[in-house]
Design a protein around this nucleic acid. Structure first.
Length: 588
RNA sequence: GCACCCAUAGCUCAAUUGGAUAGAGUAUCUGACUUCGGAUCAGAGGGUUUCAGGUUCGACUCCUGAUGGGUGCACCA
């Protein structure tokens, strides 16, 4: 167990010493010293109110082992702590501990300021892990629903890397399948519009929606059967890798990929591995045929797959009766590739919760096929984004395109907030800031909620940038930057013990917990926990800012300490936003 | 029918993974030095954590059952 938190570590050592001398019978008869140390470290929680202390130690487990009441144990421990830097007070079953500001300053703030605090290894051993996220289809439009996946996956990659894990990021675009056939079918047979010069990817997405509308329109008419035949013919042509539709596929596919890359660039996400469905198609079907020949799969109603009904997982179909593969077929081969060629030890799939059964089936089949690592496959399911009037569907065309959201957000930021700087800043600065703030608002909006909660996307709500929002945190950061520009620090020697104001103490308490927060959030795949942490830190800074003079403080020692503290908060906010993939503007 | 997810203030969400008096935002009402940036801050009201049992020192959290809502279950991805 890595005890990266130096404040916790210090308190743990002190309590451990007191416990060893007060209750010598405990070690090693009942507990080994190291186990006890771990127990104490883990049992330290933040005090419910900052006035009570920095950390609280609940004496429940100790009391149970000692067969005494928790309150008595708490009293004894509090009485035993003589360290002048630690103030211990027993409160019921808890010992509340306040660490001197000087210790916070030396152990934490100084290290935040020199950057070393953010370079700590937060986990002991880390299996090589792949995080697959963003599985957009080509020939379809990107919408806000895709944004949740992108933000989530990107944040996970960043926070897991931050905590010291080896991460390989990957994306799996769907550039093959019926949606492609429908889009191309409409383009060639029904479309009257000329191809646009720019925005071809978006245009292609609209072609797909129109195709669906037309197809649904003609359902139930004699035309339905004809459409079906035409689509099948197109699919076969694509599979044969020749002919006019195949040529059209090659060029249009590029349009979509170009659009994806544009969005990824905007979002500042990069993938180590790009897997395209089209490259998995033939080999995955081939592999399944081999597996069937080896007797590892079964035939059912003309299709090949694995019956998992005894485990309540239904039938996992891998080859349709026409001999072609399915999504599961490709996922199976892709998993094999990840294990065998990329040599990962753990695999995370960031995918909408509606695919839960699919992944259960795939993981189980992998296990049956003898892939030990299958038990280290994890489907990180998140609830989807829907509109106030129901679920989003690019088939039906009731979506909010990503570009709409981004542009409206940027315009809104420019007209309602940045307009006042038109004579002060350059047009580039305004544009750049608008982009950063819009991105902060969108990312924070997508990440702040727990993954299993649905997000109802309402544009008007999203444009409100007050309260708990990305811009709130960015604003606090910008304000600190502004403060630093106006009042540069003049001394590196800081007298930390002058920081005694409750608002200052709150910040000291918040700051030392940054790494623990990120480590825990990473452990649980919960970026939302980091959102909450940053929001609270920013809020505490704003209180401090209101209640204390910082740059204008007359007392030099106090001013320097406060400036250093502010700077540490600013750096931490920037780091935290960075871990979530959000920019931190210097001014806004 | 079977499986999974959700239910906390009017609304949108938290709650350190079983710990102290369940907290924020928003909406409503009231207030903040002729400001180190008001995208800020302070205050007020707002709760039987859907319901009924159980587990224990202790439950929003775990177990059982019920109710309401969502999603998925064979040739789509």
């Amino acid at each position: 167990m890595i005890k990266h938190d130096s404040i916790r570590h210090l308190v743990t050592q002190t309590i451990l010493n007191v416990v060893s001398s007060t209750y010598p019978e405990l070690i090693p008869q009942v507990l080994a010293k190291e186990a006890l140390e771990d127990e104490i470290y883990k049992a330290l929680v933040l005090a419910p109110q900052s006035e009570l202390g920095d950390l609280a130690f609940g004496c429940f487990i100790l009391a149970k082992n000692l067969k005494k009441s928790p309150a008595d144990v708490a009293k004894a421990i509090a009485a035993g702590i003589m360290d002048t830097d630690l103030k211990a007070v027993a409160a019921g079953p808890y010992v509340n501990i306040t660490v001197a500001s000087a210790i916070h300053g030396e152990q934490v703030i100084r290290k935040i300021l020199d950057g070393s605090y953010f370079k700590k290894q937060l986990v002991e051993k880390s299996p090589k892990t792949m995080i697959e996220y963003s599985q957009p289809n080509t020939h379809k439009e990107l919408h806000v629903g895709h944004m949740r996946n992108l933000c989530l996956g990107d944040a996970l990659v960043r926070m897991l890397r931050y905590s010291g894990r080896e991460i390989v990021s990957s994306t799996f675009p769907g550039d093959m399948g019926t949606h492609v056939a429908k889009c191309l079918w409409y383009m060639k047979k029904h479309n009257q519009e000329p191809e646009p010069e720019t925005g071809k990817g978006e245009w292609l997405g609209r072609m797909y929606s129109k195709a669906n509308l037309l197809l649904e329109d003609q359902n139930g008419t004699p035309q339905e059967a004809i459409n079906r035949q035409e689509l099948t013919a197109i699919l076969h042509e694509l599979e044969s890798k020749s002919g006019p539709y195949f040529e059209l596929w090659k060029t249009t596919r590029e349009w979509s990929i170009e659009l994806m890359k544009k969005v990824y660039k905007w979002a500042d996400v990069t993938f180590d591995e790009w897997y395209f469905e089209s490259t998995m198609d033939t080999p995955s079907a081939q592999w399944v045929k081999e597996l069937y020949a080896e007797g590892k799969l079964e035939l059912s109603e003309g299709a090949i797959g694995k019956n998992l009904e005894s485990e309540n997982l239904g039938f996992c179909m891998l080859l349709k009766s026409d001999g072609t593969g399915l999504y599961a077929t490709k996922d199976l081969l892709l998993a094999k590739h990840k294990f065998e060629d990329v040599k990962i030890e753990k695999s995370v799939y960031v995918v909408d919760m509606r695919q839960a059964l699919h992944f259960k089936q795939v993981f189980r089949v992998l296990e049956i096929l003898g892939f030990e690592q299958a038990k280290n496959c994890f489907h990180l399911q998140y609830n989807y984004v829907e509109l106030p009037d129901g679920a989003m569907s690019s088939r039906k065309g009731n979506i909010v395109p990503l570009t709409d959201l981004v542009h409206r957000m940027e315009d809104h930021v420019k007209t309602t907030y940045l307009a006042r700087y038109t004579n002060e800043w350059t047009a580039e600065e305004i544009q750049k800031t608008a982009e950063q703030v819009a991105k902060g608002a969108i990312f924070y909006g997508m990440l702040r909620m727990d993954t299993n909660k649905k997000i109802v996307f309402d544009m008007n709500e999203w444009l409100k940038l007050d309260g708990e929002s990305g811009p709130f945190i960015q604003y606090s950061h910008a304000r600190i930057s502004s403060l630093a520009r106006k009042f540069p620090r003049t001394s590196q020697q800081v007298k930390w013990d002058v920081l005694t104001h409750p608002a200052e103490r709150q910040l000291l308490q918040a700051l030392f917990g940054f790494n623990s927060s990120v480590a825990q959030a990473a452990e649980n795949f919960k970026p939302a926990a980091i959102c909450t942490y940053l929001y609270e830190l920013a809020k505490k800074f704003n209180v401090f800012y209101h209640e204390c003079a910082i740059g204008t403080e007359k007392d030099e020692a106090l001013r320097e300490a406060r400036l250093a503290l502010s700077s540490a908060v600013g750096i931490t906010l920037k780091q935290g936003l960075g871990v979530l993939g959000m920019p931190a503007p210097e001014k806004m």
